[in-house]
Design a protein around this nucleic acid. Structure first.
Lengths: 204, 204
DNA sequence: GACGGCATACCGACTGGTTGGTATGAAAGC
DNA sequence: GCTTTCATACCAACCAGTCGGTATGCCGTC
């Protein structure tokens, strides 16, 4: 066989697509197998259960995100605030194509599984919190370079960006258009701009 | 039976609780019946299908929200901005108890069903957009009374508040604590304060 | 380098339990 | 007596997961 280990990859790719369309519970192992062009035997050879597949999918999601964002251009800005705003702009630029193509796998999965599948929930949490953590250093540096004494922490702002983005996806799904998400991201950007705006004269 | 129409109500109440725990797809008709203390015959007498139940649940959710928010005290403020901030504070005050008790039914459902069950998606969209619309007038009035010429519309800000809240719920589910949601709501409040250049609560 | 032993990768029919939904009828209220 | 409200019994489809089996690569031994 020329391509070994390919079944696992094909199943994971199928999972990212199908689960983002239908969610975790409504996704069947058979459908995943059909999409991946793989048999059930191969599926359960690589994954011990459907839950195991979901955890692996969340990990793969994290890896794809890591490489995608690491390769993005916004890290080049000298000003840390510009890096943070560049991140937001980059997120907005990703809102293209169909909804299943730009919405978040782990945000979708954690909604359905947080109470019934703790292992999946934890994998999703690691993905979201891990991604948020990549923003923290830039936010922290921006706070220092702008001499801010904020009532919030860099971590909580990083998490809030993820909340706003996840909520933007929900609005997009409800309205059926990326526009709703795009508008929400505009508000998120404006918030960060306002946070770091130099206080006007006469105000603290 | 002394109480007529009670089966329908009991099933709907069960649906609000169970779907918020497990999502739509993972919720079975049998579990709903068991929780409601009702038989399957009663279920399918009142609802033509599981999908029909979900739509009715979304409508009931909207009604419960309508009465809950209509009864809240923030409408009494004379300043429209105070009404908007009062709404945010009220939302924050609701973040009590277990996660299934304060998270949003329609936000959860639309994530799983937007692609496969258009009728449920539309019911969820009506619920979210309808609720957002109740904020619009106050935001609009606040913009006028503060003489703002904003780059955003009252409608888009109203929708953004919902996005931030929905995202806050996702963070809460991922981390397993209401604290994450509460922190996100604080950021949302700060954004609105900054938009209207309003000093923080507690300051003279 | 041929061979044997063993692990990995995969196949697909099968299963036991579950699921959404139906058929039928009884009891209660108007 | 007719409609509404529910209960019981049931079903066909579907589901995650199993299992016996095959194909192929790897590695040490002679």
């Amino acid at each position: 066989m020329t391509l070994r280990f390919s079944a696992r990859e094909k199943v994971l790719d199928a999972a990212l697509a199908v689960i983002r369309c239908n969610g975790y519970a409504a996704t069947t192992v058979d459908e995943l197998c059909a999409r991946a062009g793989v048999t059930k035997g191969a599926f359960f050879h690589h994954f011990s259960s459907k839950e195991d597949l979901a955890i692996a999918a969340a990990q793969r999601w994290s890896e794809k995100a890591r490489t995608l964002f690491a390769a993005a251009g916004y890290h080049a800005h000298g000003d840390p605030l510009e890096r943070v705003l560049g991140y937001i702009d980059f997120r907005k630029s990703l809102l293209r194509g169909g909804l299943p193509e730009f919405t978040c796998l782990v945000g979708t999965m954690v909604q359905e599984t947080y109470d019934s599948h703790p292992a999946i929930r934890d994998a999703c949490a690691r993905s979201i919190l891990g991604h948020a953590a990549t923003l923290e250093a830039d936010i922290e540096a921006a706070i220092e370079s702008y001499d801010l004494k904020p009532a919030f922490t860099a971590k909580s702002l990083a998490l809030y960006t993820q909340a706003a983005l996840q909520g933007a996806f929900i609005l997009a799904k409800a309205t059926g258009s990326a526009r709703a998400a795009s508008d929400a991201v505009d508000h998120l950007r404006r918030y960060i701009e306002l946070l770091f705006r130099k206080p006007k004269r006469g105000r603290p």
